[in-house]
Write a protein that binds this DNA or RNA. Structure first.
Length: 592
RNA sequence: CGGGGCGUAGCGCAGUCCGGUAGCGCACCGCGUUUGGGACGCGGGGGUCGGCGGUUCGAGUCCGCCCGCCCCGACCA
């Protein structure tokens, strides 16, 4: 490609809306342009990289038996109503009516499409197992797109769906994906780790997220350096401290003027915050048939811990969970700042599983200015649900080995879900098994967003001057710069044109900077765009005996004799690829 | 949806407080010089100042409403 014809331009300064490096560099280098919040155009340079990324995905999917296909983006609402997600998902789903007034949905993911297809196509166990996948546009009307391509509303995802006759089959396909995903990330030059995750709107049994660790990430992970435990904060467990047992003392009402926070109460009464019970009030929207109801949720946790809203939400099976207002809190008979689970009416009480073992806690009295001492679970109050709702924090004990956990930020670049029969049951995806029984198809779903992956690669591989693409996903392998100079200009240009033709003839992808720009501009742009190899044809290089060679990831330059350029470039590309391949390893599977 | 910030040429910004008819750098076009790390000179093109309404003799500037984008939070595969 001649750069003078390339449909994009570099920018010296990044548009002010870009804050993180990958976003700034992809804009400056002319890879992407934004059309609306979270909606982007991918210019030729980006498209070339995306195609390479997607081809790597195709290879890895095909290698585990995947068959590529394509399913619609625009879908009838009916199939989403069948699985109830039409009702469960709120404004995040793109909806419209067609000209005949029928409800339509924009695909956020494709389980329903797969379900519809499977129930039509799959009749016999002989057709299973199967693995289908496609690369297709998704639309999710995210409340807050951010960080360039990291979090967008419209994106392309490689999503695959495994179909099995039994659970062993699902295990097998799940594990195959577990490894294939590491292969994909490694081949793209992106270091990623797998952590156990919440199943979220997908439903299902077991899920892993693949995380690229970066401070710009929006998820918080807890890692154990001692035993390797890793989990998303949303579901991370901790080994909780063991409370000192004690005989239950009589409840005592004490005056605690102006003590609205746990710290104030504990300080005023001279007890550790771990001796207090904190109340958190939420309003949950719960699905009930095709409708929803609102329920007041009163969560109780030890004063030195925080409630994990994802765990709480899962515990009450909420569609939505939001903090309650003061009026709502008073309406159920509690007093904000002095709230107590003792003597509540009409609230769904959820208690962290550490509370029942903790004797003689300080809790509110549901009366301004007063708390209760020596409150004991079971004797003084009870809960509808007792489970783990504690948020894991930096320094908490690892649930497996007890060592302190560490928190890091990460971006989710892929996920795999064991769906089980959630969609098959809802949509009637059944088959006739060997034993003559009708059984539901067992499904798994597996996704990687290609644009987000591109952004993470850019985030991982850049320096102050620009991008540094891994050879496997670089738009072009070689950036050829010609500096015609003045005297021998024509000779130099002829030499460069010839080299451009020779490289192309050898099947090497070349971006040829033939623009009439000054040397400084050309070198700066070459660094910005970040192709792995730069070749410079100039009078100076010619006099030194050939063509200047430089790798983007190294600072040394060297002169290569004319006759050896092709072989050198091929060898260097091979060396870069070999280094990438060396990162491929067998991953240890962390199951249930 | 709550809090904050910003919308002036393709990009980065000044001008807005204090109203007087729009400017700087880069980019772009032409000519010439220059040619190994973001060159220089001369000449040029490009703006409904986010939109609508109001105040005023006069609005980029003041007032009201709306829209858009970014950041934090809520949310999220």
């Amino acid at each position: 490609m001649r750069m003078s014809r390339l449909f994009s331009q570099t920018l010296r300064e990044a548009p002010s809306e870009a804050e993180i490096p990958s976003h700034q560099l992809l804009l400056r280098a002319g890879f992407i342009r934004q059309m609306a919040a979270g909606i982007f155009s991918y210019l030729p340079l980006a498209k070339r990289s995306l195609t390479k990324i997607e081809n790597i995905m195709r290879q890895e999917m095909n290698a585990i038996g995947g068959q590529e296909m394509s399913m619609p983006v625009v879908q009838p609402a009916d199939i989403w109503k069948e699985t109830k997600r039409w009702y469960q998902i709120d404004a995040e789903m793109g909806r419209f009516k067609d000209r005949n007034g029928r409800d339509m949905a924009l695909a956020m993911t494709h389980e329903e499409a797969v379900g519809d297809l499977v129930r039509r196509e799959i009749r016999s166990y002989r057709q299973l197992p199967a693995l289908i996948y496609h690369l297709q546009t998704k639309f999710r009307d995210d409340p807050r797109p951010r960080a360039g391509l990291i979090r967008v509303r419209e994106f392309t995802m490689k999503d695959s769906y495994s179909l099995d006759a039994d659970w062993e089959g699902l295990d097998k396909q799940y594990r195959a994906h577990f490894q294939a995903y590491f292969n994909i990330f490694n081949r793209c030059g992106l270091p990623a780790i797998a952590v156990k995750s919440d199943v979220g709107m997908m439903g299902g049994k077991l899920a892993h997220e693949y995380m690229y660790l970066t401070p710009y990430g929006e998820d918080t992970l807890l890692l154990c350096d001692a035993c390797g435990y890793s989990a998303n904060r949303q579901i991370a467990h901790i080994r909780k401290p063991v409370p000192v047992p004690a005989a239950a003392l009589p409840v005592e009402k004490v005056s605690t003027p102006n003590c609205k926070t746990i710290a104030e109460v504990a300080g005023f009464l001279g007890v550790p915050t771990s001796q207090t019970a904190k109340a958190v009030f939420m309003i949950a929207t719960l699905p009930e048939g095709e409708k929803t109801i609102q329920r007041f949720v009163f969560a109780v946790i030890r004063g030195d811990m925080e409630v994990n809203e994802t765990k709480l939400s899962n515990a009450v099976k909420a569609k939505e969970l939001r903090p309650a207002t003061e009026e709502e809190i008073r309406a159920i008979g509690a007093e904000p700042g002095y709230a107590s689970p003792v003597g509540l009416k009409d609230a769904l009480v959820v208690v962290d599983d550490l509370i029942p073992q903790s004797p003689n806690m300080v809790a509110g009295a549901n009366e301004a200015g007063y708390h209760l001492k020596n409150v004991n679970y079971g004797r003084d109050y009870s809960a509808q649900i007792v489970t783990d709702i504690a948020a894991a924090q930096e320094g908490d004990a690892c649930p497996q080995c007890g060592s302190p956990l560490r928190t890091v930020r990460g971006v989710e670049v892929g996920n795999i879900f064991k769906l089980g029969t959630r969609y098959s049951d809802a949509m009637g995806c059944t088959f006739l098994d060997k034993d003559g029984q009708i059984k539901p198809v067992i499904m798994g779903s597996y996704g990687i967003g290609s644009g987000r992956l591109l952004a993470c690669i850019a985030e991982e591989h850049h320096d102050d001057n620009g991008l540094i693409w891994p050879v496997s996903v670089a738009p072009f392998a070689v950036h050829l710069v010609v500096l015609p100079g003045k005297g021998e200009g024509e000779t130099v240009t002829v030499e460069a044109d010839q080299l451009y033709a020779d490289l192309q003839a050898a099947g090497i992808e070349v971006l040829y900077d033939d623009r009439p720009e000054s040397p400084g501009v050309k070198f700066m742009d070459a660094d910005l765009l970040g192709m792995p190899i730069r070749l410079t044809v100039s009078e100076r290089a010619h006099k030194a005996g050939g063509v200047e060679f430089r790798r983007r990831d190294q600072s040394e330059k060297r002169i290569i004799p004319q006759a050896e350029v092709l072989a050198t470039v091929q060898a260097e590309i091979a060396a870069l690829q070999t280094a990438l391949d060396a990162t491929l390893v067998e991953a240890t599977f962390e199951g249930e």
